[in-house]
Design a protein around this nucleic acid. Structure first.
Lengths: 321, 321
DNA sequence: CTGTTAGCGCATTCAA
DNA sequence: TTGAATGCGCTAACAG
């Protein structure tokens, strides 16, 4: 294995000079810096992270924390895209993506603690934002840097990246009413009252007010209740759902009672293959990969100043497809 | 931070003795070993991975390689469960899970190379099995240990973990014909000819032969072709599909032409929430978490002998729910 | 601007 | 069985 000593020897300089050159330390002449970098490049020298981390007292790794099983389901496809966006940025910074994922909160906390204590990981990304969370409590307490995906429920000072769900709700509803010419759109949400659902609903309600149409919301759950709801609202001629699953489920129940075709639906976060429904499915794309990139930008904003207007948070725009 | 020197000092022994005690080195007395371990435990000592890795010349990390975007879609939910199973095992071994995920094969290879060269990672898990793959070529060439999820297309000597897709196909088909009393089951697969689909189909065909029913296969794809297929086969009274997506899509097309209810369907890998279809959906559970665990067992089988009958491969059983 | 020296935390050689 | 000394690869303090 090629070490920095080898490079120093071949360049005829001391090890510390080589180190300085390779790390762009200002205390070195432009000439030798370039000469040594070129040499290292030519020889294919690559630094040993473990050694670097040992001296730095900090690992070149970011811990990505997945939620425990209970609230994972609807988000799965999103996670993979997030990982892509995150890793693309980490690679550029010579960082590595380490995952913490466990079934119970206790195990998860252990996992994170070990990353901190043994692995010297000092930066984390959380794939959830939950009030009164042991992980975030731990990270805050140890003054470690972290960014959550989604708006933190408590602790307004936490850094986070989120979709601009209100705007996306407005955009989706406008598209439904304007482009798709729907007169009686129903807003369909899960039974979980997720924060993003509330924000998208708020957007929907603002638009219906503006268009002078009656807002109508259906929370999924017990099937017969939903069926009754549908029976009572035969006027419905379009759906805005908080995600593809909810869209498809509601549409299916609608089809039970009415024989419709090419029914306009706007949903978020296109996460399912086409072919699962014959609805006219449009989607508000929330750019999970961009979210991932933005997360990393925020995570390193102590080193690389950010041009975000609101320090500590980034909102990702949307696009309708 | 508490180091091994601190422990040695408090125990009144030298650093090397402390090191040996903590690593269960045989060259130490049972008594001092236990005494020092108890002390370290009480003091809350935790070793610094970077230092350990530096001396060991190898990182306590396993690289998990995701496929590039083109063949990711149908597997997403599966990946998360795999990660859970893998990480549970890694934590036990004091290992960390590092992810390589990129959009292009070139970037992915760079990612992996950096893990090897700079990160000193020597063990990998691949979330795919593909013939003529640059990543596996690289790993083989450098004699690094890796296990693939899924049967390797070439290189029969590679280690892998897979579902017992043939048996699962037999089990699913038997369930459909026997328990669900279906007389004319259709086998539905994607247009991709994945290896696991072929194996499940083989299972299906064996069972139909045994039950003396005509095997019937439909490959999804162009909608009107599938519609025609359905029209030509009004006898179909049950579906066996290679995954939930295919099951729901085919069932939807079937519903276009026939007004049926409580239609029996057997699928694999239950990956979608209920409520997306009104079919009577049964699922062959393939235990992705167990797969993850088994992968790690195989990855470390050089250190921890395995009781698997077939060295280098593990097949995960199934269960119908 | 560059070189010498020391040290990060740990495992391991060599002596005792 | 234990201890002292050395080195893993790299960075940084201190000299020059």
């Amino acid at each position: 294995m090629l070490t920095i000593r080898d490079i120093a020897a071949k360049a005829g300089v001391s090890v510390s000079t080589a180190s300085r050159a390779l790390n762009n330390n200002p205390r070195i002449s432009q000439a030798t810096r370039e000469r040594i970098q070129a040499l290292a490049d030519a020889e294919g020298y690559l630094p040993n992270y473990n050694a670097k981390n040992l001296t730095a007292g900090e690992a070149n790794a970011v811990g990505v924390v997945f939620p425990t099983a209970n609230h994972t389901l609807p988000e799965n496809p999103f996670y993979i895209d997030l990982l892509r966006g995150i890793n693309a940025q980490l690679v550029q910074r010579q960082y590595v993506l380490s995952v913490a994922i466990s079934k119970t909160p206790e195990d998860l906390l252990k996992n994170v603690k070990s990353m901190v204590a043994q692995g010297k990981i000092k930066r984390f990304i959380l794939f959830y934002a939950q009030a009164d969370d042991p992980i975030t409590n731990f990270l805050r307490q140890h003054k470690l840097r972290f960014v959550t995906i989604g708006h933190p429920a408590d602790h307004a000072e936490d850094f986070f990246v989120d979709n601009d769900n209100l705007q996306a709700g407005i955009g989706g509803a406008t598209y439904l009413l304007d482009q798709l010419a729907v007169k009686h759109p129903v807003f369909v949400e899960s039974e979980h009252d997720w924060g993003y659902e509330q924000q998208r609903r708020e957007g929907y309600e603002r638009v219906t007010a503006e268009f002078n149409v009656e807002p109508l919301t259906c929370k999924l759950g017990e099937l017969n209740r939903v069926r009754l709801f549908i029976k009572q609202h035969p006027e419905i001629d379009g759906i805005m759902a908080t995600d593809d699953y909810n869209a498809i489920e509601f549409y299916r129940l609608l089809r039970e009672q009415y024989d419709i075709s090419r029914f306009p639906v706007v949903s978020f976060n296109h996460s399912l293959p086409d072919g699962l429904t014959d609805a006219d499915l449009h989607s508000v794309d929330l750019f999970p990969e961009k979210m991932g990139s933005a997360t990393v930008a925020l995570l390193f904003s102590d080193r690389e100043p950010l041009e975000s207007p609101t320090p500590g948070q980034i909102k990702i725009p949307y696009e309708i497809k």
